Amino acid sequence: HMTFVALYDYVASGETDLSFKKGERLQIVNNTEGDWWLAHSLTTGRTGYISSNYVAPSD
């Protein structure tokens, strides 16, 4: 899985979204569905959809 880092804080707007904080590391589970990616937070252990605009590759 690809690992990304959050560029900004994000508060989930629905049950399927994932809230995260700036600097949080996220593993991308599925990024084939446009701008919203299914991600797993390595910080909180939660999984949900994130906006690809809010993250950048961590490598």
Rank of each mutant, 00 (worst) to 15 (best):
Tyr10His: 09
Ser19Gly: 06
Glu15Cys: 12
Asn30Arg: 09
Asn53Trp: 15
Trp36Lys: 14
Trp36Phe: 10
Val55Pro: 02
His40Glu: 08
Ile50Asn: 01
Trp37His: 02
Glu24Phe: 09
Thr47Arg: 08
His40Leu: 15
Arg25Ile: 15
Ala56Asp: 05
Val11Ser: 08
Ala12Gly: 11
Val5Cys: 06
Glu33Met: 13
Tyr54Gln: 08
Ile28Glu: 00
Gln27Asn: 07
Ala6Tyr: 02
Thr43Leu: 10
Tyr54Cys: 14
Trp37Ser: 01
Val5Glu: 06
Phe4Ala: 04
Ser58Trp: 15
Asp59Glu: 12
Thr32Trp: 08
Ile50Cys: 02
Ala12Trp: 02
Leu7Asp: 02
Gly23Tyr: 03
Gly23Met: 02
Val5Ile: 14
Val29Ile: 15
Lys21Pro: 00
Arg46Ser: 06
Ala6Val: 12
Val55Gly: 04
Thr44Ser: 09
Gln27Pro: 00
Gly14Phe: 12
Arg25Glu: 10
Leu26Tyr: 01
Ser19Arg: 03
Tyr49Cys: 09
Ser41Asp: 02
Gly48Val: 02
Tyr10Pro: 00
Ser13Met: 13
Ile28Pro: 11
Tyr54Phe: 12
Leu42Ser: 05
Thr47Ser: 09
Asn31Trp: 14
Trp37Phe: 06
Ile28Leu: 08
Val29Asp: 05
Leu42Phe: 08
Phe4Lys: 01
Thr16Leu: 13
His1Gly: 14
Arg46Thr: 05
Lys22Trp: 03
Tyr54Ser: 13
Tyr54His: 10
Lys22Pro: 01
Leu7Val: 06
Gly23Phe: 04
Gly34Cys: 08
Ile50Pro: 00
Thr3Val: 15
Met2Tyr: 10
Asp35Thr: 13
Gly23His: 04
Glu24Tyr: 03
Asn30Phe: 10
Phe20His: 01
Ala12Glu: 03
Asn53Cys: 15
Lys21Gly: 05
Gly23Pro: 01
Asp9Cys: 06
Leu18Pro: 04
Asp59Asn: 12
Leu26Ile: 09
Leu38Asp: 10
Met2Asp: 08
Thr16Val: 08
Gln27Glu: 11
Ser52Arg: 14
Trp36Gln: 10
Gly34Val: 08
Ser41Trp: 01
Gly48Glu: 01
Val11Asp: 11
Leu26Ser: 00
Tyr10Asp: 00
Phe20Val: 07
Ala6Arg: 00
Asp9Thr: 07
Val55Asp: 02
Gly14Ser: 14
Gly48Tyr: 03
Ser19Ile: 05
Ser13Asn: 11
Ala56Pro: 04
Tyr54Glu: 03
Phe4Pro: 00
Met2Val: 11
Leu7Tyr: 03
Val29Cys: 14
Gln27Cys: 15
Gly14Ile: 12
Met2Phe: 10
Val11Asn: 10
Asn53Ala: 15
Ala39Asp: 01
Ala39Asn: 01
Pro57Asn: 07
Arg46Asp: 06
Ser52Val: 09
Gln27Leu: 15
Leu38Ile: 06
Glu24Gly: 00
Thr47Asn: 05
Ser19Val: 04
Asp35Ser: 11
Gly14Glu: 12
Tyr54Trp: 09
Asp35Glu: 13
Val5Gly: 00
Thr47Phe: 11
Glu33Val: 11
Tyr10Phe: 09
Gly34Asp: 09
Glu24Ala: 04
Tyr8Asn: 06
Ala39Pro: 00
Phe4Gln: 01
Ser52Met: 13
Tyr8His: 08
Leu38Arg: 03
Lys22His: 04
Gly34Gln: 10
Phe20Ser: 00
His1Met: 13
Glu15Ala: 12
Ala12Asp: 01
Ser52Cys: 12
Ile50Leu: 07
Met2Gln: 13
Tyr8Trp: 10
Gly23Val: 01
Phe20Gly: 00
